[in-house]
Nucleic acid binder design. Structure first.
Lengths: 154, 154
DNA sequence: CACATCCGGTTGCATCTACAACTATTAGGG
DNA sequence: CCCTAATAGTTGTAGATGCAACCGGATGTG
């Protein structure tokens, strides 16, 4: 008698009782928090979170510049997505694109003073939400426990 | 001497040492997991996660039907977004729209047999990723701790 | 019951994202 | 060195999302 492949395919993966609900809660909580940040930024007439992420990566980098693929690796943005995002940032004068000496294919993206200024205007808004919706609600132990758990998921 | 408003606006919110890094890790981990699910679904030539969420809500509802705004409340989708998503589901024969007797403005969305079947085809793929990337990596205690922490963030 | 307001839902339009195809350059193997 | 393959980045096009304006139908207040 052959194994019934059909049943295998349709069989529910056996997951622990609370796994799915916790997963759902994780997704729900995270997206809600992100939404709150986005809303706060919009209310303050500031650009979306993606801009912040890219600018921050650049700001942190030595010389304030990175290759595009380096930004992509950090921010989980796809290359085509990033290409156009950098276009927008460039159009607003927040970054500059320079030819890359070592690699003729790529370019270096550098943050401008205007970019740094924008970062400084965005952080208070972003940070305020983080403070109220995230830090405020967690004890130091919670934070450590959460970090420990997240680490296991990477 | 007047208070220096400028300094206040530019002042960094005071966050605990690990708050920001943990937050970053949370976002990163969650989006990575979601990406993995999406990739798995795409590899199996199945529709995106959003379809699953809506269909599941309907499936769980008594009679397999819900008002659109009820779906929206559960899934955190905006109403215009949902309006068009239901259009797509309807076009594929996965749901039906019916006029609502009690409220002449709205409509009832009901899942079809095809919709239920799709759910059953999607779950194994979704669940497999959850099992390997989520459940497998966490102890029962981890899961409880995580649930406890997430609860505080809601 | 008349009126303004609110609410569920849809739609036009602009923006953004996904996918695949493309260019140009670098890297690797015989 | 040459040829192939891999990599960095861009772009055309289609699909999805966000915003604001809109259309009824419901609700509340005088």
């Amino acid at each position: 008698m052959q194994p019934d492949v059909t049943r295998l395919v349709f069989m529910k993966p056996r997951l622990r009782e609370h796994t799915v609900t916790t997963w759902a809660r994780l997704v729900r909580t995270e997206t809600t928090l992100i939404d709150q940040v986005q809303k706060a930024l919009k209310a303050a007439k500031l650009p979306p979170l993606g801009w912040y992420d890219v600018l921050l990566e650049l700001k942190r980098a030595p010389g304030g510049e990175l290759r595009q693929y380096e930004i992509g690796a950090q921010t989980l943005l796809t290359k085509y997505n990033l290409s156009r995002l950098v276009d927008r940032l460039q159009r607003e004068g927040l970054v500059e694109r320079h030819a890359c000496a070592e690699d003729g294919r790529g370019n270096l993206v550098r943050i401008t003073t205007a970019g740094t200024e924008l970062l400084q205007r965005m952080w208070p808004v972003y940070g305020a939400v983080l403070e109220q919706q995230f830090e405020r609600r967690l004890s130091v132990d919670d934070l450590l426990a959460l970090e420990n758990i997240l680490q296991k998921l990477e």
